[in-house]
Structures are given as structure tokens and as C-alpha cells.
Nucleic acid binder design. Structure first.
Lengths: 337, 337
DNA sequence: CTGAAAGCGCTTACAG
DNA sequence: CTGAAAGCGCTTACAG
């Protein structure tokens, strides 16, 4: 069986390729009768147009890149589900990349995308991303770029975030209300803007409650679970160990459970724990985890809606604005119920 | 700034486009001096070749589709990480699709991929997939197709699975050894071949232990967590409730925890639980969950290695063979420790 | 070692 | 309503 293309269909139908193309695209210029003949043959031969020929010709690919720093993570999975639900309705495809929190990987991925491979990029930056020239270059090339959650404030485009300052503040206030006085803030090392807002909320809450903040209450963790568990159990073995922990990232809460287990301490009796987390099974943990969960699916679908609307324009331009969606604090036993 | 392409570079350098192309592709035909001139200009202008022009011309896209039935699922996330780690080394891109267990969605996605959009497809079929014509058409078109975990036995191609029969057998034997006599098997409704092997192992183990199998011990669940929790709590409220549960899918174990919680029963005292699951935090649940975990990352990376090797050939053909990797039973408290 | 030409499979102004 | 032609940005046989 020869490969089927428009030329082949045209020959079979004794029509010009241009007519076939227009018929398939339901052009108003083509008679109903011709359209039907063309479609009938195309269907019977199971013809599908070559997407790359079309992309090349139309200078758009109907493809969007999604770049995330971690794949095994409920938050990012839910965001992508939200994106996909919208984009698939518009016939868009999703190229998904995991940077594994490595800025070098992020840079490499971005370099693949500067050349028209995708019509837009939706991303959450890696925890290492201090040098952002590669991100600027996307924007300079005029390629639509939306950030979510871990945003790059320096680049003037649309960003979707959650109310991190407020969430950090409320979570910390909650721990204080439960009697904590020595509250450790766990974050990924070198985390960027988003981590900073959570941290700022935390510090403000300490301040508002008259608790003097100490520098080493901020614990920069690594991307290795083993290292984090070791680090945290070392901290918990200390005499002046924390009585409360706020984890800025889900994986650090999990490391805390493991570390607490190792040291023989008890959550919430010895140390109370709150974490930013989109785990669905937070309530099944021993003990159930108090979480700040982000509206991940909505973030994804809102991003995608915005993008779909913009991409209809000839020259899609994303406004420089920040859209904030609210997270939710769900109090469970890990913080004293 | 004009769009930069080979023609533009050629004009600037007073060379032919063909020479520029060859220089950029490091062709042996081009002098070192010319290569350096070309690369210098390309780099300085931040030139990246148009992937769609290249795809069209070379009739290959350096893109692979991965189709999964569920995104918020540790197993599939780990498989994709495994695939990505290999494919990115070879410069391949990943188009990822979630069928949400819907065969209609699966069919639609497959129809997008029949036209050269991807060089190969790696997939785990949806739980509803009884009609497989759309899958056959991929294979008939000669497009390389690899199945993993949830395979389609009727299609002669390479498949990666785990030792599901054995795992089902061992898990059931373990429950029996722990004193269970009325063991329910939870599966997604209409689940295909893979579920069948797990089921077969389960039934064989009952048989080998002289436990008469009853038909309604097989519980077909839905894709709705709420419905499943309701169904399971109804079952657990019965007088002749099960004393052991084997969940073929992670989400059904989670539904079981919720249902047990609702009914006021206790795991493992009243009912013992084992589940196929790749949750990293199985040991942090209350109580810790006995799991059969699959080597997900390896499945992904092995699939991808196979594919990368095959795609180097002009006419890549995947042998009809099944590769079985071993799962691991990890006994924890939920099954009596 | 370099260049001119053809062609991958589409779409769309232009012509009739 | 239909067709001939050009062109999207590449690569590669063919020529020299």
C-alpha cells in the first residue's frame, strides 16, 4: 500500500491537490458534492494529513510544551491533567518535559523549543534556576510563555500562582496556636520566588506572634530523599529540636515522617507538622497530615484556557499579570488536630 | 529581527543553503574552516533548525507518543521517567496522552498518531478497551508500537509486563497464611489481560489451598473513588464480609482504607489488605500497606532502550515477544505484618 | 569541497 | 467552483 497523501487522493479522484485540500478543510469554496466524494475516499483509505507538512506551511504546530521540575508529584500531575482537558478540546498536543530540578536540563529543554516546535510553553521552573537567560530568550523570541506556581518574576508574562504568603502565614499561625515555639521551615535549596513567599508568610507570622526568628530555622534540603531524612533526623536528635515543622514541599513532609520514625519521636506530640501538599491520601497517613493544598487542576485548566484564547490571535501576546488562586489549609492530626 | 533560517545564514555567509545545512550537520564533505564559520554565525544568531521542516523531509519526527490510562498514578509516572531518561539521551521528544481509562478517548488519541506525528507509540491500554481495531490499525500502518503492563495480546509486537500471575498467587497465599479464608479480589471493571493474570494467580492460590472460590469474591469497581468507597463499605457491612482483600490496582487499596474507616473496622484485625501499588509512602499509611510493587522505572527505560535501538533501522520492526520483569511483594502491617 | 535543484506534504493567494 | 503554482525550511542525490 502506497503512502496516502493529498496528491494520491487527487489522482484517484481526478481533482487537483488544492481542491482536495480545500475539501478536507471544509472550505466554503468547494461544492458539497465534491466535499463528499473527497471525504468518502479519505475515510475509506484511512487518510490522515501529515501534521508536519501542515505545521511547516502554517508556521504553527498545535503543540504546547509543558515543563515541570518533578514528575512523581501530585501537584504537577493534577496541573497537567487540567491543561490536557482543555487543550485536547482544541486539538492541541502536549510535549511534556521533566527538568528534575536541574537548571542545566531545563536549559537544554528550552533550547529545543526555540525553533517553532511548540506554539507556547507552560512551565514551572526548576529549583536551581538562578540564571534565567534561557527563559528570557523564549520571551524575546516572542514565543508565548506562561508560568505557574514556580514563576520567574523578571519575565513580563502571565503567571498563575497561589496565595503563598497567606498560606505560609496561616500555617505558621496554626502551629503557634497549637503551642509550637520553635518552628523549622523546610525548603528545597535555592528555591526561587515561590518559596520566598511561603517563607515570608512564615516569618511574618512568627513576628506577629512575638517569636524571635532564628536563622537556622530555615533548613535548605536537597533533592535526595536519603540525604533529607539524614539531615532531618540529625536535627530531631538535637536537644533543642524543633517542636513544629512547616514543609514547603510535599517530599520534605514525607522525609520528615521517615526521620521522625527513625528518632523514635511522635507526631504530633513531640513535633507538629504542616506541609504544602496535594497528596490525596494525606488523611490516610499515620498520623494524618495537615496540608496546604493548591488548586492544581484549576491552575492547569486556567492556564490552558488563557493560552487557547490567545493562540487564536495572529500575534498572541500574554499580558504581564499575576493571577492568584487560593490554596486550602486542611487541619489534621499531624499538627495536633 | 527576521526569522533566521538556513537561507538567511547562507546569504550572510555567501554560501549555498546546502553547504550551510551540511556544515551544521557536521558532514564529512565540508571543510573545517567552513564548518567553523557557519557554526559561529549560527550560534551568534541563536539559530535552531526548524524541526517540522526536518521531520517532513526526513519522514521521521524524533518524537514518541506515550499513552497511559491515568496520570495521577505512581506507576505510570515512574514508567514515564524511565522512558524520558533514555529517549532524551537520543534527542527524542515525548508526546504524552492520558486516556482516563476511556476507550473513546484512546481511539481519538490513536487517530491523531497514525499520520507520522510520532515515530513510535508506547502504551498501556485503557481499562475499557475491548474493541481494539484502533490498536490494530497502528500496527497495520507499520508504526512501531510497544505495550507495557496493560498489553494487548492480540497484536504481535514487543510487550513489557511483570510476573502478574505469580504476584497474584503469592499475595493470595500470603493472605491465606495469615488466616484469611474469604478473600475478595478488587479490580477495575472490564479490565483486560493484565488483570486477568493477577486474577488467575489469585484463583490458583485459593485452589491450591483448598479454598472454594466464590464468584462474588471478584468485585469489579468503577473509576469513581466515591462509588468505590460506597461499594466497598457496603461489602464490609455485610455479615459475611471478607477477611482479606487483594486490590489489583492502587486506587482500590486507597478506597479500601476509606471504606474500612467508614465502617469502623480495623486493618489488619478485621480485614487484611494487599495491593498492587507503586506508592512510595505505602509504609507511612495507617497501617502500612503490604504492596506488590512493579519495577516501573525499569519497564520504562527498557521499553525506551528497545525502541531507540530499533528506530535506528530503516524499517524498524518490533519482534512479537513478551518480556517479563519481576514485581516485589513487601509485607507490611496491613496484611498482618 | 561547494552549489543548484528537487522534493518532503501540505495550504493559499491568484487565475479562470 | 476548480486548478496551477509557489513556498513553508529543511536535506540529499547529482554535478562539478
Amino acid at each position: 500500500m502506497p503512502d496516502i497523501n493529498i496528491k494520491y487522493l487527487a489522482k484517484k479522484l481526478k481533482l487537483a491537490p488544492s481542491t482536495v485540500s480545500r475539501a478536507l478543510n471544509d472550505s466554503y469554496e468547494i461544492s458539497q458534492a465534491t466535499k463528499e466524494r473527497v471525504r468518502a475516499l479519505a475515510d475509506s483509505l484511512n487518510y490522515h494529513p501529515n501534521p508536519y507538512a501542515r505545521s511547516l506551511r502554517e508556521q504553527k504546530s498545535k503543540t504546547i510544551a509543558v515543563i515541570i521540575p518533578e514528575r512523581i508529584n501530585n501537584f504537577f500531575g493534577q496541573v497537567i491533567d487540567g491543561i490536557e482537558d482543555i487543550t485536547q478540546q482544541h486539538g492541541y498536543h502536549l510535549l511534556i518535559y521533566n527538568t528534575r530540578e536541574e537548571v542545566e536540563t531545563e536549559r537544554r529543554i528550552v533550547s529545543y523549543l526555540l525553533n517553532g516546535r511548540v506554539d507556547a510553553i507552560v512551565m514551572s521552573i526548576s529549583g536551581q534556576a538562578s540564571d534565567i537567560d534561557h527563559l528570557k530568550s523564549i520571551h524575546q523570541k516572542g514565543r508565548p510563555l506562561i508560568f505557574f506556581d514556580r514563576i520567574c518574576p523578571e519575565i513580563p508574562t502571565t503567571k498563575y500562582i497561589t496565595n503563598d504568603y497567606e498560606s505560609g502565614y496561616n500555617a505558621t499561625s496554626h502551629l503557634i496556636a497549637k503551642g509550637c515555639r520553635k518552628i523549622f521551615f523546610l525548603q528545597l535549596s535555592q528555591e526561587l520566588s515561590i518559596g520566598k513567599e511561603r517563607l515570608r508568610g512564615y516569618q511574618e507570622a512568627l513576628n506577629a506572634n512575638g517569636i524571635p526568628f532564628e536563622k537556622d530555622w530555615i533548613v535548605p534540603c536537597s533533592h535526595s530523599d536519603e540525604e533529607n531524612i539524614q539531615l532531618l533526623s540529625d536535627i530531631l536528635y538535637q536537644l533543642d529540636r524543633p517542636d513544629g515543622i512547616l514543609a514547603a514541599v510535599e517530599k520534605l513532609a514525607i522525609a520528615t515522617y521517615h526521620a521522625v520514625g527513625k528518632t523514635g519521636l511522635n507526631i504530633p506530640h513531640d513535633v507538629k507538622l504542616v506541609s504544602f501538599s496535594n497528596m490525596k491520601i494525606a488523611e490516610l497517613l499515620a498520623p494524618p497530615l495537615t496540608t496546604i493544598s493548591q488548586p492544581a487542576y484549576e491552575i492547569g485548566s486556567e492556564c490552558a484556557k488563557q493560552l487557547m484564547a490567545k493562540l487564536k490571535n495572529q500575534k498572541p501576546a500574554l499580558e504581564d499579570k499575576v493571577i492568584t488562586l487560593p490554596s486550602q489549609l486542611t487541619i489534621r492530626e499531624s499538627s495536633g488536630g
